[in-house]
Design a protein around this nucleic acid. Structure first.
Length: 269
DNA sequence: AACGTGCCCTGAACGC
DNA sequence: TGCGTTCAGGGCACGT
């Protein structure tokens, strides 16, 4: 599933193919994604592409009159292909460019989205998001304040988009392990030293993942859907019942907010 | 405001 | 072999 690093790597991968190109046609197939743009909006998008940016896990294709917003959901991925490449199953939308290439969104499980926001407006889905994890707005003061007033599990608060965006299930598990914090610990009970450790752990892990994902960039127009950062060793995610890589204790597994949660009962407290 | 739960979707993995 | 069931997960919507 695309987490923030994969979305950022996708952004970096597609940007060179899109920026300063003219969008000449939008081909829509499957409209039953989580959210979808009205056809009359899609019909008016033949405009130059100014840039491709990212907010949380949303990609923004910026046009003079507004932004096309893409969300990859759980199973979505983007490819830049020759315009005559036949569509396959789950290819939901193509943005055809004047270069003879196209940007194609494929999303098996259809948790993704295609949205539009007019220039000068902020789509409601983007309006109340927390800070970007790699920005200075995500700092110890902010993290401390957010945790101080929440009684629910630390992992759930970390995954709350109002607290910080882009920390999905995998990274929440990994970051809490590296910071030595029990995922089920009430957020307000997490100690100042633990928070001080958690903050850089999140930033460093995400930054490293983006950097590793960069290795797939030059092959982006190929059919390579594998995110480079998955090559990194996951310490706990998907390893329930196996020994902790630090101390050898069997990793515990439980569900928080209907998400799989793995932790070391000895290393995390 | 904060918290818990349901829901959307497909395909792989599993159980009988 | 071939069913049925379970699981994975982002994030909104809703009820309490």
């Amino acid at each position: 599933m695309p987490e923030l690093p994969e979305v950022e790597v996708s952004r970096q991968g597609i940007s060179p193919y899109l920026e300063n190109r003219q969008l000449v046609e939008v081909v829509a197939r499957q409209r039953q994604l989580r959210w979808w743009v009205p056809d009359e909006v899609l019909a008016q998008l033949n405009q130059p592409i100014l840039s491709v940016t990212r907010r949380a896990k949303y990609l923004l294709v910026q046009l003079p009159q507004g932004d096309i917003i893409l969300h990859l959901g759980m199973s979505g991925h983007l490819k830049v292909l020759a315009a005559d490449t036949p569509a396959t199953k789950h290819d939901h939308i193509d943005l055809l460019l004047d270069s003879g290439m196209l940007l194609r969104l494929n999303d098996t499980r259809r948790f993704g989205a295609v949205l539009w926001q007019q220039k000068g407006e902020v789509h409601p889905l983007l309006a109340s998001l927390g800070p970007e994890p790699l920005s200075d707005n995500f700092n110890l003061a902010h993290l401390t304040a957010a945790f101080a007033k929440r009684g629910s599990a630390a992992k759930l608060v970390l995954m709350d988009n109002h607290v910080v965006v882009g920390v999905g299930n995998i990274y929440a598990n990994e970051a809490l392990f590296k910071a030595g914090i029990l995922p089920s610990k009430p957020a307000k009970a997490v100690t100042p030293p633990q928070l001080a450790k958690l903050l850089p752990v999140i930033k460093d892990t995400l930054a490293a993942a983006i950097k590793q994902g960069g290795t797939t960039l030059k092959d982006f127009s190929q059919a390579d859907g594998k995110p480079g950062y998955f090559a990194q060793q996951l310490q706990v995610y998907g390893r329930g019942g196996q020994p902790c890589l630090t101390c050898g204790t069997v990793l515990s597994e439980l569900r928080l907010g209907q998400r799989s949660t793995v932790f070391c009962p000895k290393c995390q407290s």
